[in-house]
C-alpha cells in the first residue's frame, strides 16, 4: 500500500502522516473523555435528550403519523449519524482557526486538520451506537441482515463530510458570514433530512409525480443525506426502504463534493495561512 502511493503528491503526504492524524484524533478523544467528569455522558447526552423530546412530542403528545415503531430507535438511527454530520460541518469551520498555532507551526498537509475533525466526530458517533443498541434491546426492535450496509452508509457519509469540510474550513476562516449562514443551513437541513421521518413518509404523503419523477425521488435527489440516512435505517426498518436510487445519488453527490472540497481547499490555502 505504501509503495502504491506517490509521496510527492498531496495524497501521498497525507498517507505518510496518517500516524499524526491518528495522534490528533486520539488526543481529541482524550481531551473529550478524560478532561471532564461526565466524559462519555456528554457525547450521548445531546442525541439522547433530542430523541427524548421528539419521542415525547411525536408519540405522547401527538398521534405518531411518521416513522415506525419503536420510534426512539427509528429516530436514533438517523439522529446519531446526523450528530456526526452536524459536528463535522460545525467543527470544520473552526478546524484551521481553533488550533491556529499548531497549523502555523507545522508543515503538515493542511487537509489533515479537516480529516481530524471528520475522524474524531466519527469516533464519537461510534461511541454513541451502544445507546442505540440499548434502546433496540429495551424496545424489542429487530435487527435485520441489512445492518451490513452500515459501513457503506458510513463510507459515503465520510466522503461527503470530508468534501464539505474541506470546502467550509478555508471559506469560514476567510469570511465570517459563512459561519452564520451555515448555522441556518444546518438547522434547516436537520428538518429537511429524513431524521424525524423517513423518505417513505414523503412517498406515501405525496404520491404525485412531477414530470414523471415522484416527489420522494425529487426530495432524495436534492438532499444527499436522504439516501445515507435511509441506508442506516435499513438495519432496523427494511420495509421503510425506498430503493437504491437515493443511495446512488448520495454516493455520486458525495464524490463530487469531495472533489469540489479539494479544489476549494487548495485554492484558498495560501490566503488562509496568511489570515490565521
Amino acid at each position: 500500500m505504501v509503495a502504491l502511493v506517490d509521496p510527492t503528491t498531496r495524497l501521498g503526504t497525507l498517507w505518510q502522516n496518517r500516524r499524526v492524524l491518528q495522534l490528533l484524533i486520539s488526543r481529541d478523544l482524550k481531551v473529550k473523555y478524560a478532561s471532564s467528569a461526565l466524559g462519555y455522558v456528554w457525547t450521548i447526552l445531546d442525541p439522547l435528550m433530542m430523541a427524548f423530546v421528539y419521542w415525547f412530542v411525536f408519540t405522547k403528545l401527538m398521534e405518531r403519523a411518521i416513522g415506525e415503531d419503536p420510534y426512539v430507535v427509528f429516530l436514533l438511527c438517523a439522529m446519531l449519524p446526523w450528530q456526526w454530520a452536524n459536528g463535522v460541518l460545525r467543527g470544520s469551520m473552526r478546524a484551521l482557526s481553533k488550533d491556529a498555532k499548531l497549523v502555523r507551526s507545522t508543515s503538515l498537509p493542511r487537509e489533515i486538520w479537516v480529516l481530524r475533525t471528520v475522524g474524531s466526530k466519527f469516533a464519537e458517533f461510534l461511541f454513541a451506537i451502544p445507546v442505540l443498541a440499548a434502546f433496540a434491546v429495551f424496545t424489542g426492535a429487530q435487527l435485520h441482515w441489512q445492518v451490513v450496509y452500515f459501513p457503506l452508509a458510513a463510507g459515503i457519509q465520510a466522503v461527503l463530510l470530508t468534501g464539505a469540510g474541506l470546502a467550509l474550513a478555508p471559506l469560514a476562516t476567510l469570511y465570517g458570514d459563512v459561519q452564520r449562514l451555515m448555522r441556518i443551513v444546518l438547522r434547516l437541513l436537520f428538518y429537511f433530512s429524513p431524521i424525524l421521518y423517513g423518505i417513505n413518509d414523503i412517498a406515501t404523503r405525496f404520491d404525485k409525480e412531477v414530470a414523471g419523477v415522484s416527489i420522494a425521488d425529487v426530495y432524495a435527489f436534492v438532499n444527499p443525506f436522504a439516501g445515507i440516512f435511509d441506508l442506516y435505517r435499513m438495519a432496523f426498518f427494511p420495509d421503510q426502504w425506498v430503493g437504491w436510487s437515493a443511495v446512488l445519488f448520495s454516493a455520486v453527490f458525495s464524490v463530487v463534493m469531495l472533489f469540489v472540497g479539494i479544489r476549494v481547499f487548495r485554492r484558498f490555502e495560501g490566503p488562509v495561512l496568511k489570515e490565521i
Binding site: 490528533l24 498555532k101 499548531l102 507551526s105 507545522t106 503538515l108
Partner: peptide, 20 residues
C-alpha cells in the same frame, strides 16, 4: 506554538514531537 495549554508538559512533548 505547538503546545496546548491544558495538556501537561509530558502530553505536550508527545503531541508536538508526533506532529513534527
Amino acid at each position: 506554538g505547538g503546545f496546548v495549554g491544558d495538556l501537561t508538559a509530558r502530553d505536550n512533548i508527545w503531541l508536538t514531537a508526533g506532529l513534527h
